[in-house]
C-alpha cells in the first residue's frame, strides 16, 4: 500500500509528462492557516485560553494531511496531492498547488494524518520534515499526524503539553474532513484557504485539559478524544480567485520545498 506514494513521487519528477492540457484547466492553490479565537496564531507567548481554562502558548505545530481531493457537484473526484506536510511556524509549505480540470467543485476532502492502511514506517520519502514526524516502530510505526506543543500556566510557573496525535499502538486515529465550497473553475488561478481553529481540538464534544494529559502517544483514550474533537477544527475561509497577497507570504524557500509536492491530479470515477 505504501507504494502509492512511491508512484506519485516518480510522477512528480516527470511533472509535465503526467499532465494533459485542456483549455479550461485551472491552477489551484490550497493554503493551510491557523487561528485561535478568531485571530491568526501568534506562537510562543502565553496568550490563549482553551475550554478547560488552560492559559497556553503554542511553541510547535506541525502536521500531515493526506489524500487531498476536490469533488465536483457531479461527484467526480480530482486528486490534488497524496501527502502534505505543514509547519505553522514557517511558511515553507503553507500552500500546495495542482492543476485541475475546469468544472464546478463543491467539496474539498482530506484525511487529517495518514490512513491506517498506508501509515507505515518508511512509507513517505526520506525528507527531514517527514522523518521528524516519525512514530517509532515500537509504538506502532508510521508517522505522527500532528505534533502540537506548548506551555501553559500551572500554579508554580509553566508546564508543557504535547498534543501528539498518531496511530497509538498501531490503531488508526486519522480522520476524514469534508468541507463544502463553491468554486467554478474555467482556466485561471484559484485559491482555497483551509483554517484550523486550534481551540477546537480542546473543546467539543470532550473538553481536553492539559493538566490531565501528559505524553499521549500511547494513550488511546486521548487519541480518541482528539480524533472526535478534531473534525470541527477545520473550515474554509476563502474559495475563489487566487489571492496573490496570500501567496506573497511564501518565501524563496517555499519554491524548493513545494516543488516535489506540485503533483498532477489523476482523475478517476467514483468507485
Amino acid at each position: 500500500m505504501k507504494f502509492i506514494y512511491h508512484g506519485l513521487a516518480a510522477c512528480s519528477l516527470l511533472l509535465n509528462a503526467c499532465s494533459n492540457s485542456d483549455s479550461d484547466r485551472g491552477e489551484i492553490h490550497v493554503n493551510f492557516d491557523h487561528v485561535i479565537a478568531g485571530a491568526e496564531l501568534v506562537p510562543s507567548e502565553i496568550r490563549y485560553t482553551n475550554a478547560a481554562g488552560n492559559e497556553y502558548a503554542i511553541t510547535r505545530l506541525e502536521y500531515i494531511v493526506s489524500d487531498i481531493i476536490l469533488e465536483t457537484a457531479a461527484g467526480k473526484r480530482v486528486d490534488l496531492t497524496e501527502v502534505h506536510y505543514r509547519n505553522a511556524l514557517s511558511n515553507a509549505t503553507r500552500s500546495l498547488s495542482a492543476h485541475i480540470p475546469g468544472g464546478e467543485y463543491s467539496v474539498l476532502h482530506f484525511t487529517f494524518g495518514i490512513d491506517g492502511g498506508k501509515n507505515e514506517t518508511g512509507a513517505l520519502p526520506s525528507l527531514e520534515h517527514f522523518n521528524n514526524m516519525a512514530w517509532p516502530s515500537p509504538m506502532g510505526g508510521g508517522y505522527h499526524y500532528m505534533r502540537m506543543e506548548g506551555l501553559f500556566r500551572i500554579p508554580d510557573g509553566e508546564g508543557s503539553f504535547l498534543t501528539h496525535t498518531g496511530p497509538s499502538a498501531g490503531a488508526d486515529f486519522s480522520f476524514d474532513v469534508s468541507l463544502p465550497l463553491h468554486l467554478s473553475v474555467n482556466g485561471g488561478s484559484w485559491g482555497i484557504t483551509v483554517v484550523m481553529d486550534i481551540n477546537q481540538w480542546y473543546d467539543a464534544p470532550t473538553v481536553y485539559d492539559f493538566n490531565d494529559r501528559g505524553s499521549i502517544m500511547g494513550n488511546a483514550d486521548a487519541q480518541f478524544t482528539l480524533q472526535e474533537n478534531g473534525t470541527a477544527a477545520f473550515s474554509i475561509s476563502h474559495a475563489g480567485r487566487h489571492d496573490h497577497d496570500a501567496h506573497e507570504h511564501e518565501g524563496e524557500e517555499n519554491h524548493e520545498e513545494t516543488a516535489g509536492e506540485e503533483q498532477n491530479h489523476e482523475e478517476h470515477a467514483d468507485d
Partner: peptide
C-alpha cells in the same frame, strides 16, 4: 525545569 526547557522534557 523552566519555561526555556523544551516542552518534550518539561512534561515530566
Amino acid at each position: 525545569r523552566s519555561n526555556l526547557t523544551d516542552p518534550l522534557m518539561l512534561i515530566r
